[in-house]
Simulated scan of single mutants.
Amino acid sequence: MSPRKILGWLRAYAAHDDPLVATANLVALVVASNVPFYPVYHLLLIGRDAWPALLEAPVALIFFAIPWVSRRSGLVGRTLPPLVGVANTLFCMKILGEASGNALFLVPCVVAAAFSFRAKERWVMLPLVWLPVAVFLLSIDRMGAPLAPFTDAQFAAMLRLNAVSTGIFVGFLGMLYGRAGIESARASR
Rank of each mutant, 00 (worst) to 15 (best):
L29F: 00
L26C: 08
L20R: 15
S2W: 03
V31G: 01
A14S: 15
Y13L: 03
A22T: 03
Y38M: 10
L10W: 10
N34T: 13
V31M: 02
L20G: 08
I6R: 07
A22V: 06
L7Y: 01
L10P: 04
N25S: 09
A12T: 13
F37K: 04
A12F: 07
V31N: 01
S2H: 06
V30N: 02
P36S: 12
A24E: 05
K5Y: 01
A22I: 02
G8E: 13
R4I: 14
P39H: 07
V35F: 01
Y13P: 00
A15V: 02
A12L: 14
G8K: 11
V35Q: 09
P39D: 05
L29M: 11
G8W: 03
A15N: 09
D18M: 09
K5P: 00
A15W: 00
A28D: 04
Y13W: 06
A15L: 02
P3S: 12
T23E: 12
S33H: 03
A24L: 07
S2F: 01
Y13T: 04
W9R: 13
R11F: 00
L7I: 13
S33N: 06
P19F: 13
S2I: 08
P19C: 13
I6F: 04
V31S: 03
A12I: 10
Y13K: 04
D18V: 11
T23W: 12
S33G: 15
